[in-house]
């Protein structure tokens, strides 16, 4: 117990302990004179170090001038894109891509169903209801979670595609959202006010 507490005295001194550990150390210090002595000495060491002033250095103003004069050239294109900017582009692109994919799948399904209904496809094994269920079962066994979610999503989206008017207004809405998104992004990355030549120092 005593040895273990010794390891936490510095953290206690630096106010880095929280919760039950802090209470434990406090309780131990109240009972243990040796640890109180050690803590006192550690505090004195810390204060001794902080009280020791460093030698005088070059004033910040002169030092900054020296550094800026010695700065090497840096290619401007070296700056990688900011984190988040990719997401700004990627998010609307993914939404549009996803929507496009769903629409194409619906369209193709409608065509195939219509072709089958008017007998253009003949007796095709792959389009028989029993075979379709067989493939669905197999896919469900392979990707159980994803298939359930996809079926749910497709059913939900299917409701949207019932009428042409609904479908059109939804697509217009998505395009408007996309442009709003881009406009917002453009505004956020716009030029910032320049730093005044006599910027305040923190000294």
């Amino acid at each position: 117990m005593h040895e273990e507490m010794q390891n936490f005295l510095n953290a206690y001194l630096d106010r880095e302990l929280r919760g039950t550990r802090l209470l434990e150390v406090k309780r131990h210090l109240a009972a243990c004179k040796t640890c109180r002595e050690t803590l006192k000495e550690l505090r004195l060491v810390s204060e001794l170090l902080k009280a020791d002033a460093p030698p005088p250095f070059t004033p910040p103003e002169r030092f900054a001038e020296r550094v800026t004069l010695n700065l090497p050239r840096r290619p401007l294109h070296a700056r990688p894109p900011k984190p988040g900017s990719l997401a700004w582009w990627l998010a609307p692109v993914l939404i549009l891509g996803g929507w496009f994919f769903v629409r194409v799948v619906f369209l193709l399904s409608n065509w195939v169903t219509a072709a089958d209904a008017i007998g253009l496809l003949g007796q095709n094994f792959w389009l028989e209801p029993r075979s379709q269920l067989f493939w669905l079962e197999m896919a469900r066994n392979l990707f159980p979670g994803q298939i359930q979610e996809t079926i749910g999503l497709v059913s939900w989206l299917g409701g949207w595609g019932l009428s042409l008017w609904q479908s059109l207004s939804l697509q217009v809405g998505i395009i408007a959202l996309y442009w709003f998104w881009l406009a917002l992004w453009w505004r956020m990355r716009g030029p910032r006010p320049m730093l005044p030549r006599t910027a305040p120092s923190n000294r």
């Binding site: 900054a64 550094v67 800026t68 120092s201 000294r203």
Partner: peptide
């Protein structure tokens, strides 16, 4: 110039 400010 901005970097000089960071240095300061």
């Amino acid at each position: 110039h901005a970097f000089g400010e960071l240095v300061r």
